[in-house]
């Protein structure tokens, strides 16, 4: 073709590299060592810039999803964060530097509406689907012991089939009022503990339901315990009309 040669031909074999005077091992190691060092430095610098942004975005997403399963962002006035430590919920406090303690990757949210009435709790769950782990957030009302909602946080399920756990409206909206443990049905759910899977996305949708059951089993005792102790404290202190959960 031309002298700025295009070598998609197998002339790329090691032995026809330009003009052989053999290079000492030291030079080779030094070259790659220096290159690796420079690459590492660059990555550390960029990671320092992007990591806080990524962490902040994750927090925002968690909080947004929590508000959504608690009944929509518009309804929420105040939201509190808890960490799940040794089977009970510990309030997360933020110090002056923005550091949270106790720190957790999967906080539990408690939301109140504009009249300061408790809406419920939002907590995370996860279960293996068809392709990968499906992370979810579950909204739960301790006063009625029933669900408020569920949101799939992200999924790598098969586009067009498994990812209907996000796109299927019946599946996405069937949760409010349901009570755990949930029983899987095939489109004919009627009782309070029955929910439908999605035909064509059976593995993914039943994984979501399993994940919900597991998360509820894990967090429900802690939430109910916190609620009853909180409401007792509230009643004895202020005789407020807070509903005992």
């Amino acid at each position: 073709m031309s002298d700025i040669e295009e070598t998609t031909k197998p002339s790329t074999a090691i032995d026809d590299a330009p003009e052989e005077k053999s290079t000492s091992s030291f030079v080779m190691i030094a070259t790659l060592g220096v290159a690796g060092l420079l690459a590492g430095l660059l990555l550390v610098v960029v990671d320092g810039i992007t990591a806080p942004r990524i962490a902040k975005y994750r927090k925002q997403q968690q909080e947004l999803a929590a508000k959504e399963v608690l009944g929509g962002e518009g309804r929420i006035l105040r939201i509190e964060k808890f960490a799940f430590v040794d089977g009970s919920l510990v309030p997360i406090t933020v110090d002056d530097t923005g550091q949270e303690s106790p720190s957790t990757d999967s906080p539990i949210f408690r939301g109140y509406d504009a009249n300061n009435v408790l809406l419920g709790y939002a907590f995370p769950g996860a279960e293996f689907g068809y392709a990968d782990v499906i992370p979810i957030v579950i909204g739960y009302s301790p006063s009625t012991h029933s669900l408020l909602g569920m949101k799939v946080l992200g999924n790598k399920e098969t586009p067009g089939l498994g990812d209907n756990i996000v796109n299927d409206e019946h599946f996405a909206n069937q949760w409010p009022g349901k009570t755990a443990p949930l029983v899987q049905m095939k489109g004919n759910a009627s009782l309070a503990n029955e929910v439908d899977t999605i035909s064509g996305a059976t593995i993914s949708s039943s994984a979501v339901i399993r994940g919900m059951n597991r998360a509820i089993e894990l967090y429900k005792p802690a939430i109910d315990a916190l609620e009853s102790s909180d409401s007792q404290a509230a009643v004895s202190a202020t005789k407020s009309e807070k509903e005992a959960g």
Partner: peptide, 28 residues
């Protein structure tokens, strides 16, 4: 600057660095 014996490793190192940068940039 790159000895021809280690050029492929060096290219991969360079490519991998930029890929990681792109990865972090997209995520952020």
């Amino acid at each position: 600057l790159i000895p021809s014996e280690v050029r492929i490793s060096a290219y991969i190192l360079i490519i991998a660095t930029f890929v990681t940068l792109a990865d972090m940039g997209l995520e952020a």
